[in-house]
């Protein structure tokens, strides 16, 4: 009991210097979707005489969390990461023939600022993939799998002149590169694997009180 009270007391004292973290944004990149290790677009092109193309993949994510915590390596935020990646493959011969792969991801993560204006994000967790065949109106959902993501971004709000920074407060914009992936088993025994290198832009609300004092 004493340990619990001590933990709560330390947490409250610790948390008084912290605040919320939130970011939301999207990115674009070239997604690779593999079924049992085989690139679906490549396989479909073999069957359809190179009449298959794919749209640029879309990545979307929301992170909410708390921080910063000082661990000697820069301000660190603990977050919950919710995101999706989507990959559309379409048939040049028929406009209505399209296969859409979507992976929904959720899991815990951390945000780290090794340099005041460079943000590194790491997440890992669970994922569910869906396959939607528009023409046949078929939607298949995979079993639960796992996901991971790593990102590096430039934090525009952290490197502004003091007057601009005062105006923005804790609001900011991020621009960066993200690599995320997922692996999901399906009812048929086949595995859907998606990998997405993407460039993203995000709006972020970052409680910087501790971070500012540490950087000075």
């Amino acid at each position: 009991m004493k340990k619990v009270l001590l933990f709560v007391t330390v947490f409250i004292a610790f948390a008084s210097a912290q605040g919320p973290y939130f970011d939301v944004g999207f990115g674009f990149g070239e997604i690779k979707t593999r079924i049992d290790g085989k690139d679906y677009v490549k396989e479909a092109n073999i069957l359809l005489a190179n009449n298959v193309n794919d749209h640029e993949g879309i990545e979307f994510s929301i992170k909410t969390g708390y921080g910063p915590f000082g661990l000697g390596i820069g301000p660190l935020y603990v977050v919950a990461d919710l995101g999706l990646i989507e990959h559309s493959v379409f048939n040049n011969l028929y406009n209505d023939d399209e296969v859409i792969f979507t992976t929904y991801m959720f899991g815990p993560g951390v945000i780290l600022y090794p340099i005041s204006f460079i943000q590194i994000g790491l997440s890992a967790g669970l994922s569910v993939a869906t396959v939607n065949m528009a023409k046949e109106n078929i939607e298949i959902e995979s079993d639960l799998g796992y996901m991971y993501s790593a990102s590096v971004a430039y934090d525009f709000g952290a490197n502004l002149e003091p007057s601009f920074r005062e105006l923005l407060g804790n609001h900011s914009f991020l621009f960066g590169f993200k690599y995320s992936g997922s692996r999901n088993p399906t009812y048929s025994g086949k595995t859907i694997k998606m990998e997405t290198p993407s460039f993203f832009i995000k709006y972020a609300y970052i409680h910087r009180k501790k971070a500012v004092s540490l950087s000075k």
Binding site: I35, L47, A49, Y94, E98, V131, M133, I138, K190
Partner: peptide
Amino acid sequence: ITRLPHPLEM
């Protein structure tokens, strides 16, 4: 072969 193959039936 004119339609996209079903990903899980190949």
